[in-house]
């Protein structure tokens, strides 16, 4: 059994050593807000926080997260509340299809922790997630809107 702490809850799951954290979260724990986009750490759709750091969970073995605190999009804000990034996303009407946005929001929330007021250049270098619908312009505006509130 592998014991994972996800969003403050402890889960004992039976996964093989090579199972990526992404699939452990989606299929064994049943939280599907974290998305599969590429499986090779290219797109960022699977971004979660591990001990506060943004991590692309598709290449991160679940067993490596034992003893660490994993936070997914479902646990970014306490139940019934919204994280400032989520608020900025809703206010800015950012998502199109929305499939990339869990990962985007997790990446941006992590950025704002280290850089509360990021410049455009900071955003360019930190947010390397892919959005095929091309919501980048709205994302940039929403990051600035959330800055200082996160």
């Amino acid at each position: 059994m592998t014991r994972l702490n996800v969003n403050g809850t402890s889960h004992d799951i039976d996964v093989a050593d090579d199972t990526p954290l992404l699939w452990a979260i989606r299929e064994w724990i049943g939280l599907t807000g974290t998305k599969y986009g590429c499986g090779v750490a290219q797109c960022g759709a699977c971004t979660v926080h591990i001990d506060g750091q943004p991590v692309r969970s598709c290449l991160y073995p679940a067993v490596a997260a034992v003893g660490k605190k994993v936070v997914t999009i479902e646990g970014l804000a306490p139940k019934g509340k919204m994280h400032p990034v989520q608020k900025a996303w809703v206010e800015g009407d950012v998502p199109q299809c929305g499939y990339c946005q869990s990962g985007m929001i997790m990446a941006v929330a992590a950025l704002l922790k280290t850089k509360p007021k990021p410049t455009d250049a900071d955003i360019d270098s930190a947010i390397t997630n892919i959005c095929r619908c091309g919501t980048y312009q709205q994302i940039r505006a929403a990051v600035h809107a959330a800055a200082g509130n996160a």
Partner: peptide, 8 residues
């Protein structure tokens, strides 16, 4: 929009 921002 809202459910696209919280994984639901």
């Amino acid at each position: 929009t809202a459910p696209k921002t919280n994984g639901t």
